[in-house]
Computed example of a mutant assay.
Amino acid sequence: MLNLVLFGPPGAGKGTQSEKLINKYQLVHISTGDLFRAHIKDQTALGKKVSKLIANGELVPDKITIDMLEEEIDKNPDAKGFVFDGFPRTIPQAAELDQFLAGKGSQITGVIALDVDKEELVKRVALRQKETGRLDDQAEKSQKRIEEYFNKIVLVLPYYEAQNKLTKINGIGEIDGIFNELCAVIDQY
């Protein structure tokens, strides 16, 4: 089973590249952001809690995120693998994911971090907000999310580096060029 974690700050291209990886490797995409947005749209009890947290630019608590993630994995028992996009965001989440996957006889195959500088991210997120109207892409909120990534979420990378599972790729350039670099890494697993 091919299980990938795609890392990067908001606007790094995780969603775009995930779509391409899913098609090529026939993987199931699990985006915590998409899961949150679906729960919010459906106005589930969980969605209402998540909506309030996201509206304030806060991270959703680990327990809620992990429960949603496990539910999504269990919905896909015949999957060839998964692309985790936006998860894990903390070392406890990474450890919990490892434990959960081990219980299923699986593991994280590799972690790929898309490196993009803050200036480029601000431009990309502003353009995405203009095109899609995503509320979490509004300037103040997106800036808070970008800072959250660089101040907290990147602290998860050494966890995977210690397991020799981390590869960093420059996330600036042509979409297809970045995708080819991703594939070159994945094809070595």
Rank of each mutant, 00 (worst) to 15 (best):
P92E: 12
Q107F: 14
T44G: 13
T65I: 08
V5S: 06
I153D: 09
A94D: 02
A102R: 13
D115W: 01
D42T: 13
G8F: 01
G133E: 05
K80C: 09
A126M: 12
Y160N: 03
Q143N: 15
K165T: 08
I186V: 14
E71A: 15
S142T: 11
K52R: 13
I64W: 00
T44A: 10
K104T: 09
I112R: 04
E131P: 07
R37E: 01
A12K: 00
G47D: 10
Q43Y: 08
I169W: 06
G8S: 10
E120W: 03
D136C: 12
E174Q: 12
V116T: 11
T44L: 06
G173C: 10
N23L: 13
F7W: 05
I40G: 04
K52W: 06
V111S: 07
L2N: 05
E120A: 07
V154T: 13
L53W: 02
P77N: 08
L182P: 02
F87K: 04
G177P: 00
G47F: 00
A113I: 01
L97S: 08
D117S: 12
R89V: 11
E148A: 12
A55F: 07
R134G: 05
D117T: 07
A55W: 04
D187I: 10
S142R: 01
P61M: 04
D78W: 01
L155T: 12
S31Q: 00
E119S: 14
L6P: 00
I40P: 01
K141F: 08
D137F: 03
E174G: 13
Q143Y: 08
I22P: 01
L97Y: 06
S51D: 05
G171M: 09
I175W: 10
I175P: 04
I30F: 03
V83A: 08
N56V: 02
T90L: 10
A139R: 12
S106C: 02
L4E: 00
K130M: 14
N56C: 12
I112K: 01
Q163A: 14
N170T: 07
K152C: 09
A162T: 06
E96M: 06
F150A: 04
H39E: 13
V125K: 01
D62G: 10
G110P: 00
Q93L: 11
L155V: 08
P9H: 05
L157W: 04
S31D: 02
D176R: 01
E131W: 05
E72M: 14
N151Q: 15
G173P: 03
L35M: 13
R89H: 10
N76T: 09
I64H: 04
N56T: 10
R37N: 06
G47K: 02
E119R: 06
D187Q: 12
M68S: 07
A94K: 02
Y25V: 05
M1F: 13
G47Y: 07
Q17M: 13
V50T: 09
S51H: 10
K104V: 11
A55S: 15
K48D: 13
Y159A: 12
S18Q: 09
V28D: 03
L97H: 04
E140Y: 05
G57R: 00
T132R: 07
N23C: 05
F82Q: 02
E148K: 11
Q138D: 07
R145A: 03
N170A: 08
K123T: 11
Y160R: 02
T65Y: 04
R37S: 02
G133V: 11
K104M: 10
